[in-house]
Simulated scan of single mutants.
Amino acid sequence: MTAETTAAAAPARSWRGPSAAERLRILGETTSIAIVGASNKPSRASYFVATYLLSSTRYRVYFVNPVVDEILGQPVYKSLADLPESPDLVEVFRKHDDLPGVLEEAKAAGAKTLWLQLGSWHEDVARDAEAAGMNVVMDRCVKIEHARFHGGLHLAGFDTGVISSKRQLLA
């Protein structure tokens, strides 16, 4: 596959997400996060994110998955409607075709922000969420963004300690 056919296969991205300052504001105003598509498997990204959020943030974290009962000692809810409160932020780990349905659940639950995980992009969902007055972030990880803004990237091994663009000599 050539670069030309790859570019032709991927639709152009016209939606523009919030700036870094706006993402920082969203995270700062957030007190509760619901992870839709949370997994109890340590190899899954949602599990890694959940571990970080529970151990390194002040957020109340809720897990949503209709087929799991417990993750990291916390109860798992079958849907956003079952949560004990309206989540400020709904972080989504679901496949592309499920995103419109998750948006409808998030709107009905009174969520303020729809956050689509790395690799997840759906412009129609973003436009619909914004039209409903919601913040939208796509193709970004809450864990990475929070750690980036709060100096915690080293927790996942992203911070090498090198303050140079030159490769470090280890020999």
Rank of each mutant, 00 (worst) to 15 (best):
V90Q: 02
G161H: 08
D124E: 12
S164A: 05
V136I: 05
V162G: 03
R23P: 07
A21Q: 04
L169Y: 12
A81P: 09
A129I: 03
C141P: 09
A21G: 10
S14Y: 10
R167V: 13
K166T: 15
V36K: 00
L54I: 10
L24W: 06
R25I: 04
R16E: 14
N135M: 06
D97V: 10
E105R: 05
Y52C: 05
P87K: 00
R94G: 03
V68F: 03
K107S: 01
A132R: 07
L118T: 14
K78L: 14
F48D: 13
G133R: 03
K41E: 15
A21I: 09
L103H: 06
A12W: 00
V137I: 02
E91W: 10
D88I: 11
S55R: 15
L80R: 04
T113E: 06
T51W: 08
I144E: 03
H150D: 10
S120P: 06
H150C: 11
A132T: 10
I33Q: 06
V64A: 06
A12K: 08
L80E: 05
P84L: 09
L153W: 06
G152T: 03
G119I: 02
S86C: 12
P75H: 11
A171P: 14
A126F: 02
T31E: 11
D82Q: 11
A9F: 07
L116C: 02
W121M: 10
M1A: 08
G151M: 00
L89D: 04
L153T: 13
A20V: 04
E130G: 07
S165V: 13
V90R: 00
L153S: 09
S55N: 15
D97T: 13
G133F: 01
G73W: 08
P11E: 10
T5Q: 01
S55P: 10
Y59M: 01
A109E: 03
V92G: 02
L118P: 01
G37F: 00
R13I: 09
A7D: 05
S43F: 13
A81N: 00
H146D: 03
S79G: 10
E145A: 12
P42A: 09
S165T: 15
L83T: 04
A171H: 12
S56Q: 15
A3I: 12
P100K: 04
A12V: 14
P11N: 07
A156S: 15
D159L: 01
G133M: 03
Y52K: 02
S165A: 14
W115G: 05
L118V: 15
P87M: 04
S164R: 05
T57A: 01
H122K: 02
T51K: 05
A106W: 01
H154E: 12
I35D: 06
K143E: 15
A147D: 01
V136A: 09
G28V: 05
G152K: 02
A3H: 13
A3D: 15
Y47E: 09
R94K: 05
T6V: 10
D128S: 11
L72K: 07
D98W: 12
L54Q: 01
R60G: 13
D97A: 14
A3C: 12
A21M: 03
E130A: 08
W121N: 03
R16T: 15
W121H: 11
A50P: 09
S79M: 02
P87E: 05
S19I: 08
D82C: 13
L118I: 14
D97R: 07
V36C: 09
E91S: 14
Y77C: 00
L153D: 09
A34R: 02
R148E: 07
N135P: 13
